[in-house]
Design a protein around this nucleic acid. Structure first.
Lengths: 102, 102
DNA sequence: TCTATACATCGCCACATAACGAAATATATG
DNA sequence: CATATATTTCGTTATGTGGCGATGTATAGA
């Protein structure tokens, strides 16, 4: 759901979800393996984004749609999106050092 | 997936999946609470069916579609459907006593 | 009313999953 | 080349889930 606002690097997701780096990294690798997200590496950062590739599996597309519709009104999700929007104008590099929301 | 062939009572599902009665009953109650299946009681039997009510939630509909598409080619699912089709002509009451596939 | 059958509920145990910290790897920078 | 930062991998621990048997409830039939 966080990735709907655009790609995020691991440390941004860490700050958003307040989880350990290792936890987020592991989850993202699982999501990537499942074909739900893609990643690109830029320098020290790895940016994850939703898989919107036309060649993605229909199952992945449906799963993403379902999760989006099932959680888009969840108060926690809404709070998270609010935090993300407040930082969306910042340069990702700056964000990574300044820590999201601080 | 088994309910795609029509409604089934708990003991039929027990025979199909080779699980304990309590396990099947628990799972069906969870599926019912989630709005994925409905049930009707007839005498001592409780028949479960997929929730195809037009008033069902869109989330439930999508979830059912997703599961169907994700598993319809699974070999275990195909075997199970084969077993069900072999018994589809029988009277449910008779089925319950004769045990599916025996 | 008593018994048998079908289903639901409860408590317990085994196993799977998710979390963390520590250590390893990769890359930019001094 | 050494250091700092970002990410990944590994091992351990805590929590969640799925399974069963025992027990309780409802209904049909003797």
């Amino acid at each position: 759901m966080a990735l709907r606002t655009g790609e995020l690097c691991v440390c941004q997701i860490v700050e958003l979800l307040q989880l350990a780096h290792s936890t987020v990294s592991k989850h993202m690798s699982i999501l990537k393996q499942a074909g739900l997200v893609e990643s690109r590496k830029k320098g020290r950062w790895v940016y994850y984004r939703l898989n919107n590739d036309p060649g993605r599996s229909f199952l992945a597309e449906q799963a993403l749609n379902w999760v989006c519709e099932a959680t888009s009104n969840d108060p926690v999700i809404l709070d998270d999106l609010k935090i993300l929007n407040e930082n969306v104008r910042l340069d990702p590099d700056a964000l990574c050092k300044s820590k999201i929301g601080k």
